[in-house]
Simulated assay, not measured.
Amino acid sequence: MKKFLQYTFIAVCFLPSAARAQFETIKDSVVQLYGVVMTADSLQGLQSVTVMVKGQNRGTVTNRQGVFSIVVLKGDQITFSSVGYKPKELTIPKNIEGTDYSVIQLMVTDTIYLPATVLKPRPRREQFERDFLNTQVPADNLEIARQNNDEAKRKVLMAYLPRDGQESNRNHLIKQSNKIYYTGQNAPINLLNPSAWNEFVKAWKRGDFKSKK
């Protein structure tokens, strides 16, 4: 018990000092990085360049004049990237004095060479007309919607497409509701009901009784 109290007393005495020392170390390593990103050929400020701390999910972008500012730590790696330019990396020195560090980052244009495309004319006018008239243009979303809303096509889809989960569940609930509604009594026979015969004829014309694969 005495040893436990001694260890506790020592920890209480030295932990604040250790925490203070660690805080001072982190505080000394914080650096305010600021600067300007420019094009290497014309020395013009580059807008919307992404400035990221490598390995961390934080960063900033340059303004219209190419100026940026971000808080980093000594030893951090900073990446500069922009569309059409080669990415650059910058390492913050660990031995800098003070809490400010300024840079002028030059970005070099990234040239991308695409494979050559050769355009050749048709040998004869007749061949061009034949190929142009026989070209199958794929239907866009509007045309596909029109085709799906065609009455004849909807009848075919209703006859052969299986029921989805919502339709099966609704049909099951209707049957259960009718069964509970006529509990304790005989269900009516609609053999001589004109309204029931009318619904039967409509369903027959729609093809509701065709087998669905």
Rank of each mutant, 00 (worst) to 15 (best):
T25Q: 12
K86W: 12
V12G: 08
T62C: 05
Y34K: 13
E89L: 06
G75N: 02
F4P: 04
E89A: 12
L5R: 09
G59L: 02
L5I: 11
S17G: 12
L46R: 05
Y34S: 15
I92T: 07
T109L: 08
P93C: 04
G75D: 06
K120S: 12
F9D: 08
K88D: 12
K94P: 03
T39S: 15
I96D: 02
D28Y: 08
V37C: 02
E89V: 10
I92M: 03
L90P: 03
L106M: 13
I92D: 04
Q6H: 07
M1L: 04
T99P: 00
V49Y: 04
T39V: 06
V31F: 00
T39K: 10
D100M: 11
L46S: 07
I104K: 08
V71P: 01
S29T: 13
T62M: 04
Q105L: 12
P87H: 03
Q32Y: 10
E89D: 07
L15E: 03
G84V: 04
M52S: 13
N63D: 14
G59F: 02
R64L: 09
Y7W: 13
A40I: 10
T91S: 13
K94N: 14
C13G: 02
K74S: 02
L119D: 10
V31N: 03
F9K: 08
Q47R: 11
F23T: 15
Q6R: 12
K86G: 12
L119V: 12
L46K: 08
Y101E: 00
K88N: 14
V67Q: 14
R20D: 10
N57W: 13
S42E: 14
V83S: 13
V71F: 09
V103F: 02
T60H: 01
I96T: 05
V49I: 08
K74Q: 05
T109E: 14
S81F: 00
Q77Y: 10
V53L: 00
S102W: 06
S82E: 09
